[in-house]
Design a protein around this nucleic acid. Sequence first.
RNA 1: GAGGAUAUAGCUCAGUUGGUUAGAGCGUCGGUUUGUGGUUCCGAAGGUCGUGGGUUCGAGACCCAUUAUCCUCCCCA
Length: 461
Amino acid sequence: MKPSIPQGTRDFSPEVVRRRQYILNTIRAIFELYGYQPLETPSMENLTTLMGKYGEEGDRLIFKIINNGLNDPKNQEKAKIGFEKVLEGKNSPDLTERALRYDLTIPFARYVVMHQNDLAFPFRRYQMQPVWRADRPQKGRYREFWQCDADVVGSDSLINESELLCIYQGAFHKMSVPGIEVKINSRKVLAGLAECCGASGLLTDITVAIDKLDKIGMDGVQKELLQRGITEDKLNFINNYLNITGDAESQLIQMSQLLASSEIAQTGIQELRTTLAYHNQLADKNWNSNVVIDFTLARGLNYYTGIIAEVTTNAVKMGSIGGGGRYDDLTGLFGLKGLSGVGISFGVDRIYDVMEELNLFPEQLSSSTKIIFVNIEPAAETAILGYVNELRKSGIAAEYYPDKAKFDKQMKYADKRNVPFVGIVGESEMKDNVIKLKNMISGEQETVNLMQLANVLADSI
RNA sequence: GAGGAUAUAGCUCAGUUGGUUAGAGCGUCGGUUUGUGGUUCCGAAGGUCGUGGGUUCGAGACCCAUUAUCCUCCCCA
């Protein structure tokens, strides 16, 4: 049998895991810095928790888990009826009661509702776990991938929005990802545009179309708008909308004039202005990225209601590497009304791909072991195990090659593992209670005692 | 859900208009008189050419089907 793994999934080899952990640790540290608390939820949720939350397309992409025990005689009849429903494209709890987590936001909302009496609001949590989507895999798209979410519920303040923007900037600055652009917009401005076009019902169609501006150009957007049912006389208005440029304040002023007749748009514009003002106070001027207003930004998920954000890098051809926004009534879906939330998500797998392509990972991630002692003299074993033990006690990762093997084989092994030092204790070293220490990077060798050895290794960290 | 491409050694790929025992590089293993890797030199192992049919005297190559992978669109992180 040929070994294989399911489509769109991946094995992560040791070096890859180290690099992924570097990303996760960086993001985690920032989340903690801003007061977010860790949360984990199950890999699977009840199907009913997930269905209908991500739009029609989303429902299709949910990985469903077939129920166990369908062969039990008392379940067989139900299973057959359930299967008929599934063949019609419907879901049936008789066949699938559970599904794999599709994102981290809905499980979070469920958690908040279930634990509402125990939580101190505003509640800030971060969550870093894999999610699954039955999407067609391609470049930068996987069926199993990780998200890192930070959300706060129970606060309407736009301070939250601006802090989350800071988290994006701080994290990507820390990871030295170049070309980062944090784009923001407001669903309320988009709603205002639809309203001014007299096409509030076509909000989604308008946003989906204009979101593609940088991809298909103005002509393409117009074509798409017409296809989606926008009448020709509205195109000019949308054109004006898309042509607004300048610095943030100038953009806001122009938009305010263009959408003067829409109350909701004015609210959205004011929210953008306030968010940027807070952000201005909180942001570190040294960060390597900027927050910019992009009125074409749409974001697919249909539960966003206020400020929305998306992160891209122009250094690599890649979709967005992060996104988020405000959702006024997320927990309402589960019966808890009046609780507003706002959150962001990091796309770890895409960030990894970007960093890998640009060679941004620090060198020293490759190995934790500082020294390997070669195994060439059985009589030295006791001494070496003693050395290894002492080094480990002082927090230095050390190994003893467990089998007696050819010298050059052991050297090759250390080299391949990227271990920076090799310790050699043969007959003569053993006699003098010393270690011959070889620096694998410079190739130099010196003879040291245990205390000197510990010092050299400690210094090399 | 729609469209396109690819499938040959562990990996990356050659293989001419169909013609004998299917090749290379890297990697692996062994040797280079055995206590020195990342840079020698020599050698070896490793493939029923994704799978199943068909055309042909003859198929890795051509045709059909099937499966898998990759890519684009849709949508998304």
